[in-house]
């Protein structure tokens, strides 16, 4: 049960000398005017005063979800990102929220300390009233509200295209702008997890600490190296050993890129080599879509019949092309003109 002293204790736990400016008589007179019976009321009365510095402009109210609150309490990174052209968002480790200013015609009085109903019964049954002075730190008519939103990652492709990776032999002279993951978080309004997903969708690789998209021709050449290696070793198309691909080609292509690229066009079959290395098969749809783009990219337009013929003859043996594979990624349209 809360005693007299604790009621007057400020939230900092330091006893504060709050001068009780209202007397029991003042309170009782007001109760009488309001036609309230003291018998119906709990003995603790709280008198609100505006704080001396009550227009606390350095304070802001933000409505959060219990989940976000826990993340903040646990010390996870919760960050507001934005500038003049991008409205601010709040990012947790995994999600992005629009920050909106919510207005209300109600007044929100912010009080550092309040006695709650279950604390408002005093022990001393002397029929008296205990008056606790409470300070109103601020009155708010608006607060910040969060709305879960999609990350704003449109800018990412543009940033990645500023400096495409064309092979390690060109890297020594490459002085163009490159971005680390942290650099990207600094300019993209997304949570780290969402940024990671967006980079994966763009097929960007982390090369020497910088995130890069591969130049299309370079990507094609990496792909060809892998396909040719599979061919020349006569590996079955559903038993391609990743480890051997990496070990054989790493002198030509950085291992990291090989590995990324390999995963774009294959899927695990669930079996391993006798040495315990995973085996993979071609992901037909992804290979067909990629090679379709390789053919269409330089011309932009192709006679359908010729295209279908060329396309089928380009893909590795045992794989069948069909037009739906191009529609998935909105890569191509066919028209009858």
């Amino acid at each position: 049960m809360l005693g007299h002293k604790q009621i007057l204790t400020s939230h900092f736990g330091v006893k504060k000398c709050v001068k009780i400016r209202r007397t029991e008589e003042d309170v009782r007179r007001l109760l009488h005017l309001a036609k309230l019976d003291e018998e119906d009321l709990k003995p603790v009365v709280q008198s609100f005063y505006l704080a001396q510095d009550f227009t606390r402009e350095d304070l802001k109210l933000m409505e959060v979800t219990p989940d976000i609150l826990n993340q903040i309490l646990e010390g996870e990174r919760v960050i507001i990102r934005g500038d003049k052209s991008d409205p601010a968002v709040l990012c947790t480790d995994t999600q992005t929220y629009d920050i909106k200013e919510a207005g209300t015609s109600n007044s929100l009085l912010l009080l550092p300390s309040v006695v709650w109903p279950d604390e408002a019964e005093t022990n001393d049954k002397d029929d008296g009233i205990t008056i606790a002075s409470q300070e109103v730190a601020g009155i708010f008519h608006n607060y910040l509200e969060l709305h879960l939103c999609r990350p704003r990652v449109q800018k990412l492709r543009y940033l990645m295209e500023e400096n495409l990776y064309t092979g390690k032999e060109y890297e020594a002279d490459n002085v163009d702008v490159k971005y680390t993951f942290e650099d990207l978080l600094n300019v993209i309004q997304a949570s780290p997890k969402e940024l990671q997903t967006a980079l994966r969708e763009l097929q960007a690789c982390c090369i020497d600490g910088f995130w890069r998209m591969l130049d299309f021709d370079y990507q094609f050449s990496v792909f060809n190296h892998i396909v040719n290696l599979v061919d020349s070793n006569s590996w079955p198309s559903d038993g391609i050993p990743l480890q051997a691909v990496l070990d054989t080609l790493e002198d030509l292509i950085p291992r990291k890129i090989l590995e990324e690229c390999f995963h774009w066009y294959t899927e695990p079959v669930g079996r391993t080599t006798p040495e315990g290395y995973d085996l993979y098969r071609w992901n037909e749809d992804k290979i067909c879509a990629f090679l379709g783009e390789v053919i269409l990219r330089p011309t932009g337009k192709f006679n359908l019949e010729e295209f279908l013929y060329t396309w089928q003859s380009t893909v590795p043996e045992g794989i069948t092309t069909n037009l739906n594979q191009l529609k998935v990624g909105n890569l191509a349209l066919s028209s009858t003109d």
Binding site: R21, R22, V27, L30, L31, A34, L36, D40, L41, K42, V44, V45, Q46, S47, F48, Y49, L50, A51, Q52, D53, F54, L109, P117, A120, Q134, V136
Partner: peptide, 19 residues
């Protein structure tokens, strides 16, 4: 308004009353 009195808060069994 700084430092000025706003009102009295009372609790009843059911709820709260602010004058």
């Amino acid at each position: 308004m700084h430092g000025s009195f706003v009102g009295d808060l009372h609790y009843t069994k059911k709820g709260a009353i602010l004058i």
